[in-house]
């Protein structure tokens, strides 16, 4: 199978960037999208060109590292799939695929297809934790959790933080991600002590980052590789509304976004 990959190349945050067309011969239908890029990169390295930078880690759809737009759809045309699990047999011989990074102000491009998703880390850091006593491990089943509630929390916790929801949203909203992270703890008794503060802080942080608003149109859940339901956004809104009404303390501080990729590390 022959494919033409029209890929976004950008040297760094300051570079303007642009598309470059790469013909790729001998694409095997069993290859994943990332393996197809590996093959292309091998040939680029052999020619002495700079290989295409893309993020990847587990290559089994559970780490949340990989992801880019293929033909205008986050993670490509197959539902519930990350690009590492998207096999090339879903494309036709001779097809041209437009591949570009997630586009959002909160996700600045680092290089080529890699974007800086630390805004997600800051949202999690602002409230994605529970209080536990240190010392001996608690008794198993000390907190009774109903099966239905456990399932709902587990469905929300399946979020791998890949960023496809933001990428697919016309407003670049992080509502599905933040909703999933709030819901998976707020639905469980272990998450109860910080429930209100979590909703306030995580929503506050999401708004302090440059994400847009949710218009409830559902593009996010359609591209989500873990099929996080739209319901988590309603859970976020409900918990946020409740917490806004009942809160007694002053407004919570947001974590300041770190500007620049190399700030904070050893250069």
């Amino acid at each position: 199978m022959r494919l033409t990959l029209k890929i976004w190349r950008q040297k760094g945050a300051a570079d303007k960037g642009g598309f470059v067309r790469y013909p790729v011969d001998r694409v095997d239908g069993e290859m994943s999208m990332l393996e197809c890029l590996d093959v292309l990169n091998e040939s680029l390295i052999e020619k002495g060109e700079e290989p295409i930078a893309f993020e990847h880690d587990c290559r089994e759809g559970i780490c949340g590292s990989c992801g880019f737009m293929i033909g205008g759809v986050a993670h490509g045309p197959m539902p519930a799939t990350t690009v590492c699990q998207l096999t090339m047999r879903h494309f036709k011989d001779g097809q041209e695929l437009v591949i570009e990074p997630w586009r959002a102000a909160a996700f600045p491009v680092i290089k080529d297809l890699i974007v800086d998703r630390r805004a997600f880390d800051r949202i999690i850091a602002s409230g994605g934790y529970i209080s536990v006593s240190t010392g001996n491990a608690p008794d198993g089943n000390a907190h009774p959790v109903g099966k239905e509630m456990a399932d709902r929390a587990m469905d929300a916790a399946a979020c791998i933080g890949c960023g496809a929801c933001v990428a697919a949203c016309p407003n670049a909203s992080a509502a599905l991600f933040t909703g999933a992270k709030i819901a998976h703890l707020n639905l469980l008794p272990q998450g109860k002590p910080e429930k209100d503060r979590r909703a306030l802080r995580m929503v506050g942080q999401m708004n302090a980052e440059g994400f847009g608003n949710c218009t409830n149109i559902g593009e996010c859940t359609a591209v989500c590789p873990k099929e996080i339901p739209l319901e988590v956004i309603a859970i976020m809104n409900r918990d946020y509304l409740r917490a806004s009404v009942v809160r007694r303390e002053e407004l919570v501080a947001a974590i300041a976004p770190v500007s620049g990729w190399d700030v904070g590390g050893k250069s």
Partner: peptide, 19 residues
């Protein structure tokens, strides 16, 4: 705000679920 949230648009974008 939504406009500021995506300063660089997509060259191609396909709506797959929204009405």
């Amino acid at each position: 705000r939504a406009k500021r949230a995506r300063p660089v648009g997509y060259s191609r974008r396909q709506a797959i679920a929204s009405s």
